Computed example of a mutant assay.
Amino acid sequence: MRLSNLADYAVVVMSAAARHCGSARISAAELAQETGLPAPTVQKLVSRLVSAGLLRSLRGAKGGLQLARPAAAITLVDIVEAVEGPIALTACVESGTATGGKRDCGMEDSCAVRPHWPMVNAVMRDALAGIPLTRLADLQAPAIEARSHGGSPARMEMTR
């Protein structure tokens, strides 16, 4: 599984916003400069993150962006779903298909595994929900490395 670049960038932007203590206000331009992301990309993400209720946009002389709730109350799943939509590892589990009713799998009606995908999706969602933004924004936090059988770091990648 692989996160899209946009979801990855959303995590970067939210982590940067969280490092400003949540109550401090920062502009999208400052977030772009701090993260090294292109300003149009940050603006697009800010729009989605505000719509999802993760960031608050304040106007005026003391305006800017700030976390809409405490960093400890925002999780990785909140950020990913703000950009990607609900966690769904296979298209057949989504209500209605992204292809407008066209089926992507010829086995969809007779698949014995299909009934189990909602449980798998829930486990994945719960795992991401267990990672608070405070953890992601903590530069001093020790890295947690999952190791595959071969001894090299395992990668979790999400695609839609």
Rank of each mutant, 00 (worst) to 15 (best):
R19F: 06
A18I: 01
I144A: 15
R25C: 04
P118K: 01
E108M: 10
G96K: 10
L55V: 08
A91E: 15
T90A: 09
A16Q: 08
A127C: 12
V123K: 08
S148N: 12
T35E: 09
M119P: 01
S15H: 01
G53F: 11
E145I: 15
V83T: 12
M158F: 15
A39N: 12
K102A: 13
S27P: 05
L65Y: 00
L65S: 05
A112E: 06
A24G: 03
V50H: 10
R48D: 12
T134F: 05
C111V: 01
S23L: 05
S23M: 01
A61V: 05
E108K: 07
A10G: 06
P40F: 00
E30F: 09
Q43H: 11
G130W: 00
P38M: 08
G64Q: 05
M107F: 15
L31F: 11
C92I: 13
V13S: 01
T41H: 14
I79R: 05
P86W: 10
C21W: 07
D109C: 06
I26W: 06
Q43T: 08
I26Q: 06
L31C: 12
M156G: 10
S110D: 15
G106L: 14
T75A: 11
S57N: 13
L133I: 03
T41C: 12
A7N: 02
A28T: 10
I79F: 04
Q43D: 14
R59F: 05
V120G: 02
V42L: 10
A154I: 00
P132V: 03
A72L: 05
Q33W: 10
C92F: 06
S15W: 02
A141G: 08
L58C: 03
G53T: 10
S27E: 08
E94P: 01
I144R: 15
E34D: 14
K62M: 06
T41M: 15
D8G: 07
Q66H: 03
V113K: 04
I87A: 08
E30C: 08
W117D: 04
S51H: 13
E84I: 08
R56P: 00
P142A: 07
A7Q: 02
A91W: 00
G100L: 14
S95W: 11
R25Y: 04
G22C: 04
W117M: 01
P132A: 00
G100A: 14
L3Y: 12
V120F: 02
R103V: 11
D126V: 07
G53N: 13
Y9L: 06
K62D: 09
R125W: 05
S4M: 10
A98P: 00
T35W: 07
A82C: 12
S23D: 09
A24C: 07
R135A: 07
L65W: 01
S152N: 11
A71T: 03
D8L: 06
H116C: 01
E84G: 09
R59H: 02
R155W: 04
S110L: 12
V80G: 07
A16V: 08
S27Q: 10
R103D: 09
S57P: 00
G53E: 11
R125K: 12
A146N: 12
L49D: 07
T35A: 09
A88E: 11
L31Y: 09
E81G: 08
V120K: 01
A24R: 14
L136M: 15
Q140E: 13
G101M: 11
A112F: 04
Y9H: 13
E81S: 14
V50Q: 09
G151P: 07
A137D: 02
A122E: 03
